[in-house]
Amino acid sequence: MPFTRREVFKLAGISALAALGRTSARESAGNAVGEDEDVVIQSGPFSAEQDSFKIYSCPEWFRDAKFGIWAHWGPSSAIGEGDWYARNMYMEGSRQYQYHLKTYGHPSKFGYKDTIPLWTAESFDPKALIRRYGEAGAKYFVSMGVHCDNFDLWNSRNHRWNSVRMGPRRDIVGEWREAARAAGLRFGVSEHVWASYNWWETNKGADKQGPYAGLPYDGINPANYDLYFPPHSPAREPWAEQGNESEAWKREWFLRAQDLIDQHQPDLYYEDGPIPYGRWGRPLVAHFYNQSLRWRGKLDVVYTAK
């Protein structure tokens, strides 16, 4: 069957990208992220430079996959009071605050960290669920990787607060991935933690009235800053990059997101917001695309942002 001129050029471009991917796989070092020589991305045609993304082309599988299912499931599911429970339970007078006070006690004594063991996932059967999703017509499945509660749902190399070490003590993302791939579904992950730095500053507060007035919530304890974040300048709003985020946090975000990509090799990566943090965000996308070339010999993945 003869090819059109456009198809010939497209095939040539795909072949060139695949060759670059195979070359980069043999290299021992990637490209450093800014001045951080110990933080590198996979070598390849994509880089932190915005123009490098002009060669990207959406893979055919995603163009054809009109229906996918996403599981927004994590520690707060065991409580059942909403996915913003971790934030709102520290807001005096809110519905979640009232529920927490009545059910578990005051947030100064029983904080979000103390609810994590309640999520045991004892009935979690990803194979059965994926089978039902496939029967419903889903072509891909997306597992939540980490929500704004700063709790990783895989065997995180860079964060002790994760589902393998605590809570269900299972690699939730990994089990979803294995079930989806076995059923022939494309697999994706979602990441929401970039916004947590400001989203979760409520855990540093205290009641303004009543019997607990002035008693700080448990987020003020330095022993748990790696979950709750250290104190920092106040945010203007909970869901936006605001310039007060520390470089240490941006670096941690990058390393954890990179680890999620490298361990689970998703077909799709969903960022719950814009590409974060400039010189840290674009290299992450570049790393993901370059890794696709290394894993599969072609550009076959999708990065999508809200």
Rank of each mutant, 00 (worst) to 15 (best):
residue 3 F to Q: 14
residue 4 T to I: 10
residue 5 R to E: 10
residue 6 R to S: 12
residue 8 V to W: 05
residue 9 F to I: 15
residue 13 G to N: 14
residue 15 S to I: 14
residue 16 A to K: 11
residue 18 A to Q: 09
residue 23 T to A: 10
residue 24 S to A: 12
residue 25 A to D: 09
residue 27 E to R: 08
residue 28 S to A: 11
residue 29 A to F: 14
residue 29 A to H: 15
residue 30 G to Q: 05
residue 30 G to P: 01
residue 31 N to T: 15
residue 31 N to R: 11
residue 31 N to A: 08
residue 31 N to H: 10
residue 33 V to M: 03
residue 36 D to I: 15
residue 44 G to R: 04
residue 47 S to D: 11
residue 49 E to I: 07
residue 52 S to C: 07
residue 54 K to P: 02
residue 57 S to M: 11
residue 57 S to H: 14
residue 58 C to Y: 13
residue 62 F to R: 05
residue 63 R to C: 06
residue 67 F to M: 03
residue 70 W to V: 15
residue 70 W to D: 11
residue 73 W to S: 01
residue 74 G to V: 02
residue 75 P to E: 10
residue 78 A to S: 14
residue 78 A to H: 07
residue 79 I to S: 03
residue 80 G to A: 10
residue 80 G to H: 06
residue 81 E to W: 07
residue 81 E to M: 15
residue 83 D to Y: 11
residue 85 Y to P: 02
residue 87 R to G: 09
residue 88 N to L: 11
residue 90 Y to G: 04
residue 90 Y to R: 08
residue 91 M to K: 12
residue 92 E to R: 07
residue 92 E to W: 12
residue 98 Q to R: 14
residue 99 Y to S: 13
residue 100 H to I: 07
residue 102 K to I: 08
residue 104 Y to N: 12
residue 104 Y to V: 08
residue 106 H to A: 08
residue 106 H to E: 14
residue 106 H to S: 09
residue 106 H to M: 07
residue 112 Y to L: 01
residue 123 S to T: 15
residue 125 D to Q: 07
residue 127 K to D: 15
residue 130 I to A: 00
residue 132 R to C: 00
residue 134 G to K: 12
residue 137 G to M: 03
residue 137 G to N: 04
residue 143 S to M: 01
residue 149 D to P: 01
residue 151 F to M: 00
residue 151 F to Y: 03
residue 151 F to L: 01
residue 161 W to S: 03
residue 165 R to C: 08
residue 165 R to N: 13
residue 166 M to W: 09
residue 169 R to F: 00
residue 171 D to V: 02
residue 174 G to M: 01
residue 175 E to L: 04
residue 182 A to S: 13
residue 183 A to N: 03
residue 185 L to P: 00
residue 187 F to W: 00
residue 189 V to P: 01
residue 191 E to F: 02
residue 192 H to A: 02
residue 194 W to L: 04
residue 194 W to I: 09
residue 195 A to M: 11
residue 198 N to R: 08
residue 200 W to D: 13
residue 201 E to I: 09
residue 202 T to H: 01
residue 203 N to T: 12
residue 208 K to F: 10
residue 220 I to V: 15
residue 223 A to F: 06
residue 225 Y to W: 15
residue 227 L to R: 04
residue 227 L to A: 08
residue 228 Y to K: 02
residue 233 S to M: 13
residue 236 R to A: 13
residue 236 R to W: 11
residue 237 E to H: 12
residue 238 P to A: 12
residue 239 W to G: 02
residue 240 A to E: 15
residue 244 N to L: 10
residue 245 E to N: 08
residue 247 E to Q: 12
residue 247 E to D: 15
residue 252 E to T: 15
residue 253 W to Y: 12
residue 254 F to Y: 01
residue 255 L to F: 06
residue 256 R to Y: 02
residue 259 D to Q: 09
residue 262 D to R: 05
residue 262 D to V: 06
residue 265 Q to I: 08
residue 268 L to V: 09
residue 268 L to M: 12
residue 278 G to D: 15
residue 279 R to A: 12
residue 280 W to F: 14
residue 283 P to S: 06
residue 289 Y to R: 00
residue 292 S to P: 00
residue 299 L to Q: 10
residue 300 D to N: 05
residue 304 T to S: 05
